[in-house]
Design a protein around this nucleic acid. Structure first.
Length: 924
RNA sequence: GCGGGGAUAGCCAAGUGGUCAAAGGCGAACGCCUCAAGAGCGUUUCUCGUAGGAGUUCAAGGGUUCGACUCCCUUUCCCCGCACCA
């Protein structure tokens, strides 16, 4: 960025200090907000777009005379910064590198990062500073963080309402858990296994004397087909007391079970070999033998497997291997499921058909999948086992087993290993006393769906995704042990989960600047009930202030639009609807949402951990804020993914410079007004209309295209038409004033600076240009259109002409050809129009010439844009005088002599081919 | 795997039945300007063409239609989400 730009931006920033503070007024309001950032690191250009797009919209509506509120706050609740501060405290290389080198945190500040609050405080300030330098017209007086006592009071109030509405309930919940960190771990905390899902196994308890041998299965309905158990003879199993009963299982399994809501105590060991050939029993399959098998993994579930050879390929293979050695030949598969396309023993058939040789065959895994999904999809239990579809039987059998036959649940990952960032193995742990938000509640879901029905969603395609998310949402565990945040008001052992505390804060913005002046201790639920719900209670404190807040809330709410990237559809954006529906009355429910695409950097995903980021501040320093803004806006519509490419940005800078030069030149212009001015002014009306419409629809890229390149190309033509002359004084003034205002939302620094030479006040608050239909000059536009098209044709001919040209003759079509075109254009029956036209006496009289003309005109009709045909047919431009008037220009432009004639007054054979709006061109 | 959204010229992207060889921007080439470079301006940028035209294109294949980038079906590939995490 040049020093000049730097100085300009600094001076404009000064002018903007404090001016974007939004205060309720007589004007209509426009309240937009964005998902607030979690300030754990520096902003990159991807964040930049997230906040710049809404800023463009905010600036647009401000200029259209709305009272605009664009607030910002910081989400500092949650666990990530705690991990970061720990890593920095223990001098973790990669963490320090990231913060010191990439985010450029000064060493003395970095030293304070051992306290997580210092991290978020530091970056909150950075965010505000960088956002300001990007020109965001944010009302900073409403800034807050989510750990301020005042905000916590607001959260407590919200949660009491949620609980009163019956949406918060207690339960147990399986989570990924790191024993070393003593904390649940999320995807981003994992070194390995981030795709692993928690599977819910049913433990089938086989009796072995007084002890249980638990086998874990995903298919409890197959218990009827169990012919034996599998044990790994190579390992040593443990005997332990689980909830007072003796179990035999692998050591690994014992440790896992211990995390899953069971009281576990080891009492001895038993080698796998000792279990071989022992009998176990279960009421559903009788007495079966334990057989040896090497495929049994002690680290998978219980380390003991029940065998259903009729329906499980692995089991069948293992059994076959033994039987081929002449052992256990009395064991026969027991079929229990009828499957389309298979006989009595699907697994047996599948294995034999696929020529599986032994237990190590790599195809076995896929084969198992095929058989399992076939059975799940179309399988039906045999009559003696209930006759129900597998899908249903599975649930029912599990239930019976749980209730009457000591079965339980064991959770296990579907892929392993799962490893925490700290290096330790991650297990499934069942957390007790978890609080849940019951998003599964159908009635609550319905409220959200009803609200979605009334909402404006941009782009329209996201609507189905929202509905699907609502359907798909299950209960959400909303309490945490670790992290920053607000405590559950009725159970202070727990913190409120960070996504759950950020659902209605848009309402808090409306009062954020005023509530700061009240002692948090006074902020009882009754206070918020009054502010947000208008519910009176006696002896409310600070009544005057509360009234002010109540008024302000009523003025701003509901918000008009919420902006966010599309990855938040499946959680935050939908959660906030649930919460709004519960807390607020109908008239305060959200009005609309705009969903953004994602950002790429030089074609690759932006990722701080991989170092593939470009900091917004660096971008602004390198190119200037307006260039960054214009590039981001121009790279795609908000909902499209965009790619920041350093190599393409610098041309944006040049475009802005070109714009500035044009405006300065225009303001200095003092020529007389000519006919062509009418055209330019007319075109401007067009652009104003288009830009306004695009902005109203959040099509910021379209708005930029129209306001920048659309106008620029008109100016090019205007200048070409003027030749050496200077532009008309008044026209140029008008153009400058309109153009600067149209671009002000996108490149506000540049426009603010230019505006001081155009009018008083700030362009940020200047009125948006109005389309003035009285200044639309149809005939001027048509005349120029005709000239442009004709020049294109002339150039096209000159290009392929080898002989040097001397003179151009333009021959315009006679009026009877215009009649033909008009008839064609106005005909309702386009198919038979040729015949109908030829019926006309005066046309018919012209014979073949007319027939050809009809054909050509039909052709022309299809080739020209339909709105243009309509306009020219209506106004019937006088082509002869248009070309005559422009002949000096044409002659200069082509550097050739120009003659304009009427085709019926010329004998040149080409002259007769003239058509309406497409004169014959004769170059000699 | 499941759900949602996509695939248009070197790149970004507009375009939902004839107006389309397909807007606009970027990039590139050439010309003008200049001592020169850059900027600026102009032209070109699927192929062919000594007259404004013709031919082949809009992921691939098939279909509907007088006519498809646009509607339907199938396939391939890409992006987003799949949860306790911001």
């Amino acid at each position: 960025m040049t020093e000049e730009t730097q100085a300009l931006e600094a001076s404009v920033r000064k002018k903007w200090e404090g001016v974007f503070i939004a205060t309720p007024s007589d004007k209509e309001k426009f309240y937009l907000n964005v998902a607030y950032p979690y300030p754990s690191g520096a902003m990159h250009v991807g964040h930049g777009r997230t906040y710049i797009v809404p800023d463009v919209i905010a600036r647009f509506w401000r200029m259209r005379g709305r009272e605009v509120l664009y607030p910002m706050a910081f989400h500092v609740t949650g666990a990530p910064v705690i991990g970061i501060s720990k890593r920095i405290a223990r001098k973790d290389e990669s963490a320090i590198k990231l913060y010191r080198d990439l985010y450029k945190v000064p060493q003395d500040v970095l030293d304070t990062f051992t306290d997580p609050l210092n991290i978020v405080n530091h970056f909150s300030n950075e965010y505000e500073r960088v956002m300001t330098s990007a020109g965001l017209s944010i009302d900073w007086s409403r800034r807050f963080t989510t750990v301020e006592p005042t905000y916590s009071k607001f959260i407590e109030w919200q949660w009491q309402h949620l609980r009163a509405a019956g949406h918060v309930n207690k339960g147990a919940h399986p989570v990924r858990y790191c024993p070393q960190c003593e904390n649940p771990v999320g995807d981003h905390d994992l070194l390995e296994g981030d795709k692993a899902e928690i599977q819910k196994f049913t433990l089938i308890m086989f009796s072995y004397g007084d002890a249980f041998v638990p086998c874990a299965t995903l298919r409890p309905e197959t218990i009827y087909g169990v012919t034996n158990l599998w044990v790994n003879p190579g390992i040593t199993y443990v005997r332990c007391q689980v909830d007072g009963k003796e179990w035999i299982l692998s050591r690994e399994a014992m440790e896992k079970i211990g995390l899953q809501d069971h009281d576990v105590k080891e009492i001895g060991t038993i080698p796998g070999t000792e279990l071989v050939d022992k009998k176990v029993s279960h009421p559903f399959c009788g007495e079966v033998t334990i057989l040896p098998a090497v495929f049994v993994d002690p680290d998978m579930a219980t380390g003991l497997v029940m065998s259903v050879p009729a329906h499980a390929p692995y089991d069948y293979i293992a059994l076959r291997d033994l039987q081929q050695k002449g052992k256990y030949t009395d064991i026969k598969p027991v079929g229990l499921i009828k499957v389309e396309g298979y006989g009595e023993f699907p697994a047996v058939e599948a294995v034999e058909k696929a020529d599986i040789i032994n237990q190590d065959d790599p195809n076995l895994e896929e084969l198992t999948q095929t058989v399992y999904s076939a059975e799940h999809a179309t399988g039906k239990m045999y009559e003696q086992y209930g006759g129900k579809p597998v899908k249903i039987a599975r649930e029912e059998v599990a239930e019976v087993l749980n209730e009457k036959h000591h079965s339980g649940i064991m959770y296990e990952f579907d892929t392993r290993p799962v490893v925490c960032r700290c290096g330790a193995r991650v297990f499934v742990k069942v957390l007790h006393d978890q609080w849940f938000l019951e998003y599964s509640d159908p009635a609550w879901k319905q409220q959200v769906k009803d609200q979605l029905e009334n909402m404006e969603l941009v782009p329209a395609e996201v609507r189905t995704e929202f509905y699907r998310t609502v359907d798909w949402l299950k209960d959400w565990a909303c309490s945490r042990r670790i992290g920053l945040g607000t405590r559950m008001p009725w159970d202070p052992e727990w913190l409120i989960e960070p996504l759950s505390d950020s659902t209605i804060y848009m309402a808090y913005y409306t009062i954020a600047s005023r509530i700061k002046h009240i002692d948090p201790a006074l902020l009882t639920p009754e206070v918020f009930d009054y502010i947000f719900l208008g519910k009176e209670t006696e002896n409310l404190p600070e009544r005057e202030r509360l009234d002010g807040m109540r008024k302000e809330f009523q003025y701003w709410y509901p918000y008009n639009f919420r902006f966010s990237a599309k990855d938040l559809i499946s959680n935050h954006l939908t959660f906030q609807l649930f919460h709004h529906c519960t807390i607020f009355p109908k008239e305060y429910l959200p009005h609309g949402m705009v969903v953004f695409g994602m950002g790429l950097l030089n074609g690759a995903k932006m990722s701080s951990s991989k170092g593939n980021v470009y900091l917004l501040e660096d971008a602004i320093n390198d190119f200037g804020a307006d260039t960054v803004r214009m590039f981001l806006i121009g790279s795609g519509e908000p909902w499209q993914d965009f790619d920041w490419r350093n190599d393409l940005v610098s041309s944006t800078r040049k475009q802005i410079e070109r714009f500035v030069a044009t405006i300065k030149e225009s303001l200095a212009s003092d020529g007389p007004e000519t006919d062509i001015d009418q055209w330019l002014i007319s075109r401007m009306q067009n652009h104003i209309g288009m830009v306004t419409k695009a902005m109203e629809n959040f099509q910021t890229r379209q708005a930029l295209q129209e306001s920048f390149f659309g106008i620029e190309s008109d100016i090019k033509w205007y200048r070409r038409r003027l030749g050496q002359e200077t532009g008309g004084r008044e026209t140029m003034k008008y153009l400058s004033s309109v153009w600067v205002r149209l671009l002000a939302p996108i490149i506000p620094f540049t426009c603010e600076d230019l505006w001081k030479d155009i009018s008083d006040g700030l362009v940020s608050f200047a009125s948006w240009p109005e389309q003035d239909s009285s200044r639309i000059n149809q005939s001027a536009e048509i005349a120029e259109e005709l000239l442009v098209r004709t020049i294109e044709d002339i150039e096209s001919i000159l290009r392929i002409l080898k002989t040097p040209p001397r003179k151009i003759t333009i021959s315009v079509a006679p009026s009877w050809k215009w009649d033909i075109l008009t008839l064609i254009a106005e005909a309702t029956d386009k198919k038979n129009v040729i015949r109908d036209v030829m019926q006309k006496e005066d046309i018919k009289a012209r014979g073949k010439e007319a027939a050809d003309a009809v054909k050509q005109c039909t052709n022309l009709f299809h080739k020209l844009p339909s709105d243009l045909v309509e306009r020219i047919v209506q106004s019937k431009p006088d082509e002869f005088s248009i070309f005559t008037n422009a002949s000096v220009f044409l002659s200069k432009d082509t550097n050739l002599e120009i003659e304009v004639i009427r085709s019926d007054e010329c004998r040149h054979m080409k002259a007769g081919s003239a058509l309406p709006f497409k004169p014959a061109i004769i170059i000699e």
